[in-house]
Amino acid sequence: MSAPGMTKPTEAIARARAGDAEAWGQLYRDYAPAIFRFCRRALPTREDAEDATMEIFMKLKDKLVQYDATRSFSAWLYKVAANHCWDTLRRRRIRQDKETDDLENVPLEHPDPSQLDQLIEQRTSEEVRRALNKLGGRARMALVMRYYSDMSYDEIADALGVRRAFVGVVLLRARHELRQALEGNAALAAGGAS
């Protein structure tokens, strides 16, 4: 798991399951920042991310009994968060039909490595986050699941409701969208500067 501070709090989970409010508070304090950041990356606005974080933890209260203690708690928690965020995006129809069409065409380009290298090297984290906000719901969700919470291809396929074989396609498409958004930012910045 890439996110920091996500160790396995076995005892707290057991106590929270038994209805211990203090243990539940501990879990919240430990995991809420990471889950908020996950939601912040996945959802369009800060308010959405705040609402989603609270809703995920409310949901967690009921779902905690389903958690298999032999597996990673944080991975499970991210799965719950991913499902919730994707449901939210889907309900708002941010996911567009165009994205489904994209899956039919496997991108086969061999981009110019030097140009791509230049684009990536010159970009800051802040610019990437801004560009992420311009992506479609599925593309953003896929990147967040993979590069924030380190979810496996199986988990991403499950959350997005696509076949596992298409997860790579979704991720590559998302990278292409991101590059376009980064180039757009750069063009905008250049235009603004001139």
């Binding site: 890439s2 950041r37 990147l143």
Partner: peptide, 16 residues
């Protein structure tokens, strides 16, 4: 991508 996503760019909102 990983760095941009994991970076703690904003604190946990007071509401949360």
């Amino acid at each position: 991508l990983t760095r941009a996503m994991l970076e703690e760019d904003e604190p946990l909102p007071s509401r949360l």
